[in-house]
């Protein structure tokens, strides 16, 4: 892979981040006001869905679903993050071992 691709991506990533903490960020923060905290809630929820169900642009039900569901139960029962993640990994790995 060429260095150009790496450096353009790095510059783009940094530019996007800077935009967020400066001009764009200020405008969005002012517009949203007291509901700004809901912004990461929507993004994280979408991330969970994509990371659990998306396989190269298609919705797929595989071992990840069982793991994330088990992790969600643990999180609902107020388990610490470490427990949530280990329960999820163990469930997914266990299912794949059996299947």
């Amino acid at each position: 892979m060429s260095w150009t691709v790496i450096l353009v991506l790095a510059a783009g990533a940094y530019g996007i981040r800077v935009l967020g903490v400066t001009t764009l960020g200020r405008i969005v923060e002012q517009r949203l006001g007291a509901v700004v905290w809901l912004l990461p809630v929507t993004l994280f929820s979408a991330l969970v869905v994509v990371m659990t169900l998306d396989e190269a642009g298609e919705l797929v039900l595989d071992g990840r679903v069982a793991g994330v569901a088990a992790g969600a139960v643990a999180a609902w029962r107020k388990a610490p993050m470490m427990v949530v993640v280990l329960v999820a990994m163990a469930s997914t790995a266990g299912l794949r071992l059996v299947a």
Binding site: L38, V41, F44, T52, V68, G71, A75, V84, M89, T92
Partner: peptide, 29 residues
Amino acid sequence: DAALPAIFVALLAPHLRSAPGRVAALGAA
């Protein structure tokens, strides 16, 4: 591959205890 979505589940969980948080998460999903 289940670790990262589980991290986000853990990060999301406290926000699901309020009604606006639940609407945001469900709608986004």
